[in-house]
């Protein structure tokens, strides 16, 4: 196997991994603050993909330019979900919350099936066959744009959480819920806000990934599980961990696809997940609680 082919595939995996990381960022932010495991993650992502697809079909908007609109729509959906439904179950046993999210996931997939049918659809852009050359690397232009867009959105999110007063308030909730409530933060509203921001992030990832893959409703399960793998490897609730996990999974999947049969590559991810759960359940960058 020539070395530059491996480098090419690894870099492509790295770029895809950035998008995985961005999507997992949404899952991780929601879990880190609300302690809710968003089992409807992949479903929200698929809704984001369909949003971008509709904007492309009806207005000719390229998926990357759809990010603000889809992001805003997903923010609204996420906010409404948390404020209207999930907040009612904050003190319910963990498995009840999990089941609520699983049930919502089933409903969202069913909605997508009813609205868009089971067939795979995609956006066809003229730039689909462009490539970018960097030294020995020859990369799909789309993959490069996707990676850059993922970094940009993730960067925005980091800046928001670090410097914006609301971001700081949300971090306060994550660090110490009682303390946050004592100093007068409206915890439930901040939870809803977090779920909204997380969902917007997932929606953005959906727009971006639409440039690389076809969308169909059954993709949702795959993305939910993939995001769990990424987030658990990186550490539940850790934002930088989610990005790192995404890169690791992206590269390892790409390389596994090269060395093994492509259909075996997700087995690799699940094996990795089992190992991490056993050896370091708090993830690579997670904090021990």
């Amino acid at each position: 196997m020539p070395l530059d082919a491996i480098a090419n595939i690894a870099t492509a995996g790295l770029l895809t991994g950035l998008v995985y990381g961005l999507s997992a960022l949404g899952l991780s932010a929601i879990f880190g603050v609300t302690r809710i495991v968003n089992f409807a993650h992949g479903e929200l992502m698929v809704i984001g993909m369909y949003g971008a697809l509709l904007l492309f079909q009806h207005f000719g908007l390229a998926p990357l330019w759809a990010i603000p609109i889809v992001g805003a729509a997903l923010f609204a959906i996420g906010y409404a979900l948390q404020a209207g439904l999930v907040n009612r179950l904050l003190h319910a046993p963990e498995h009840m919350q999990f089941l609520l999210m699983a049930a919502l996931a089933i409903m969202l997939v069913a909605l997508c099936l009813m609205a868009f049918g089971p067939n795979a659809q995609n956006v066809t852009l003229e730039s689909a066959y462009d490539s970018v050359e960097i030294g020995v690397l020859i990369l799909d232009a789309h993959r490069v744009y996707a990676g850059i867009a993922a970094i940009a959105v993730a960067g925005l999110l980091f800046v928001f959480f670090r410097y914006h007063p609301l971001g700081k308030a949300i971090r306060a909730c994550a660090d110490n819920l009682t303390g946050a409530a004592v100093v007068g933060l409206n915890v439930k509203r901040l939870f809803a806000l977090t779920f909204g921001i997380g969902s917007a992030c997932i929606g953005a990832a959906g727009c971006i990934i639409l440039m690389l893959v076809d969308v169909h409703p059954y993709l949702a399960n795959t993305y939910t599980l993939l995001a769990f793998v990424v987030v658990i490897i990186g550490g539940m609730g850790s934002l930088s961990g989610a990005l790192l996990g995404g890169l690791l999974v992206g590269v390892s999947e790409a390389l596994a696809g090269l060395l093994l049969q492509p259909s075996l590559k997700s087995m690799f991810s699940f094996g990795l997940l089992i190992l991490v759960l056993i050896l370091r359940p708090e993830g690579l960058l997670g904090r021990r609680s």
Partner: peptide, 22 residues
């Protein structure tokens, strides 16, 4: 030929049970 309707109602049942009759 609404293929998703069964699962939609399944999901709805669970949501209702979890919220109102845990």
């Amino acid at each position: 030929a609404l293929i998703g309707i069964k699962h939609f109602v399944y999901g709805l049942c669970v949501v209702l049970i979890v919220v109102f009759l845990p």
